[in-house]
Nucleic acid binder design. Structure first.
Lengths: 212, 212
DNA sequence: GTCTATAGGTCGATAGAC
DNA sequence: GTCTATCGACCTATAGAC
């Protein structure tokens, strides 16, 4: 009995994952409004009715995809933190500023790979739905907290402009994660991904102006 | 005859303007997808059918609003250019970098006033429609050209990081004109518009990192 | 005021596992 | 035979277009 139910649950998990992967790609390529639930079902290889057994609305689909990226971001951040801890014990501490840069680069890489889902900034229904989505909010807050620690440390140690509100720095990092500039440079087809990441990271932290 | 027809044309212009103003505000507040043509007609104070006599599609409405902002941007840029010319003749030249900063501040101010229409980055139909809209493309190119002159000058004179492709700088300025960070800071309600503009301009040109 | 297409959301028939 | 997962077909509201 338990094994039967466990197998069913496994199958269900697999189908859920197929859906989330499809949603992630569609959100990354077409955006929320242009994405239709029919497309999601088709790309996940099942009927729309089956999809609606697992997710109750289009908004919930978006929420699940966002939970997915936030989990990946948290895993990356925790990896960085652990590496920094080891490095510190080995006598070569990591600067918080470099951790923030690494996260930024990870986000841009994800975007360049077409794996960064992005939602419309202005959509009150969707925003409301996300804000009442506990799985999403927990991860968003967890990620914000981890980043805020590095931001504050970098400001205290004079690596980040201390006059800026930490909030502004945090928002800026989130905004750069889906910066249209990255997509525009990629579309131009003239630059390598590595080049794009270097440049946009550089403008984010050091600005457009020449070194002073 | 001619006067009657001219009056009709005047009325038509007024109605067109009412529509464009409505579209501009709706695009700035709700975005393209959430904006309905019914709302536009209601806010412009006319029946939807009348609206469709003047604009043949929702995409054309968006195009007209974009032409509107681009015209305002061009007017602002030309004002700056003329002022700089006079100042130069009076012996106090203006740095191209400061011109670019002024344009950035103007764009953020416009956004904070809820007058910056913004379109979804990813919407192939809309993009295609805009790219075949001559009025829009002419102005976009005109604005890009004027900004590119300043960008190149600022790079040659060492005010802007010369290793960055001018294209990247241009894209970044356009992106900052509808930067979500501005909206987020405004929503937090903790800062004045002037403060927000100063901070975001500063991060755009000098970055998040502390002065080197 | 009407038409129509689209897309979010539902339902009942079917099939396969036990 | 029952139970349940699945899916094609369906419904309906909305919004663009005339």
């Amino acid at each position: 009995m338990t094994s039967r139910s466990s197998i069913k649950q496994q199958i269900q998990r697999v189908r859920e994952q197929a859906i989330v992967v499809a949603v992630n790609r569609l959100l990354a390529t077409k955006g929320y409004d242009a994405m239709t639930v029919d497309e999601v079902a088709a790309e996940a290889g099942m009927a729309k009715a089956s999809l609606y057994k697992l997710f109750t609305s289009k908004e919930e689909l978006a929420g699940a995809a966002m939970v997915g990226v936030l989990d990946r971001a948290l895993a990356f951040v925790d990896g960085l933190r652990d590496a920094a801890r080891e490095a510190a014990e080995a006598g070569s501490p990591t600067r918080p500023l470099d951790q923030l840069k690494a996260v930024t680069r990870w986000a841009m890489q994800t975007q360049l790979e077409g794996e960064m889902p992005s939602l419309p900034a202005q959509n009150s229904n969707l925003s409301a739905s996300l804000q009442s989505n506990d799985a999403y909010m927990d991860r968003l807050i967890a990620l914000s907290n981890r980043l805020s620690i590095w931001i504050t440390e970098a400001q205290t140690s004079g690596q980040l402009h201390a006059a800026l509100p930490p909030e502004l720095v945090l928002y800026t990092l989130f905004a750069r994660a889906c910066d249209p500039v990255v997509a525009l440079l990629k579309e131009s087809g003239q630059y390598t991904n590595a080049q794009i990441i270097d440049w946009v990271t550089s403008t984010t932290f050091d600005g457009l102006a020449a070194a002073r």
